[in-house]
């Protein structure tokens, strides 16, 4: 793997989901690169992101993320890699309803040991929500919730951001604003960004795009399905 690679895949297979094992094509993502990953619903986007952030283990091959080999790595070590260096954003924000916007953002670095944590309020200010810091998710609009989720993913200054259809639940205008915000923040922090979307127009704004079907293939009995 090149030192400048954020992700590098080689002959990766995963049988974590016994009913749906899959294989990945050899592929890499450079540090700071922004990639739009295109795919329809059910094409395996979330499955791929779970693998890349270490929530799901790869069975064989080589999967290097931020210079660390994930194949064979213990789950706890994968958890530590994710907590310190990877920011994850979900389509449905996944904010914790019991906590305020500010607390949700701070939660982003609660589990992190990194000393270079950014102040949660600074991040909320950066995404334009400083005035709403003490509101609960239920009191925010969907767009505001997604901004909180972005701030939460970035508060630990991750080197890799994985955004799983972050605009999927938003109207077109808000979706574009969120996309721009995410790209700007990723650029500012020199973080690699994988932006999963089914919106080709949105994907066209990214310097590089990739079809998920070119990357992930479902397999049967260990063989790549034709």
């Amino acid at each position: 793997m090149s030192p400048s690679s954020a992700i590098s895949l080689s002959h990766v297979r995963c049988s974590h989901y016994a009913e749906q094992p899959f294989a990945l094509a050899d592929w890499s993502l450079s540090s700071g690169q922004q990639l739009a990953l295109l795919g329809r619903s059910g094409s395996g986007k979330s499955t791929l992101l779970n693998l890349l952030c270490g929530l799901v283990p790869a069975t064989s091959g080589s999967l290097q993320v931020l210079g660390q080999e994930l194949v064979g790595m213990k789950e706890t070590q994968r958890d530590l890699l994710r907590r310190d260096h990877i920011g994850v954003i979900f389509q449905t924000y996944q904010l914790l309803d019991e906590f305020t916007a500010m607390e949700n953002v701070a939660m982003g670095h609660y589990f992190s040991d990194r000393k270079s944590q950014q102040n949660a309020l600074e991040l909320l200010d950066r995404v334009g929500l400083a005035d709403l810091a003490h509101r609960y998710p239920a009191e925010l609009s969907v767009g505001q919730r997604q901004r909180v989720a972005i701030a939460r993913a970035l508060v630990k200054s991750p080197a890799l951001i994985l955004a799983d259809e972050p605009t999927g639940a938003l109207d077109s205008e808000t979706g574009h604003l969120i996309c721009d915000l995410l790209r700007d923040l990723s650029t500012e922090r020199e973080a690699a960004l994988i932006f999963v979307t089914h919106d080709r127009h949105l994907a066209s704004q990214f310097p590089s795009q990739q079809e998920i079907s070119d990357l992930l293939q479902w397999t049967t009995e260990g063989r790549v399905a034709s």
């Binding site: 952030c53 929530l55 789950e75 706890t76 958890d79 530590l80 994710r82 907590r83 310190d84 994850v88 979900f90 996944q94 904010l95 914790l96 939660m107 982003g108 609660y110 589990f111 992190s112 939460r152």
Partner: peptide, 16 residues
């Protein structure tokens, strides 16, 4: 379940 997934995505270990 959704909350626990969120916490895991933030880096919480199973032990935590």
């Amino acid at each position: 379940e959704r909350t626990l997934l969120t916490l895991r995505s933030l880096g919480a270990t199973r032990t935590e």
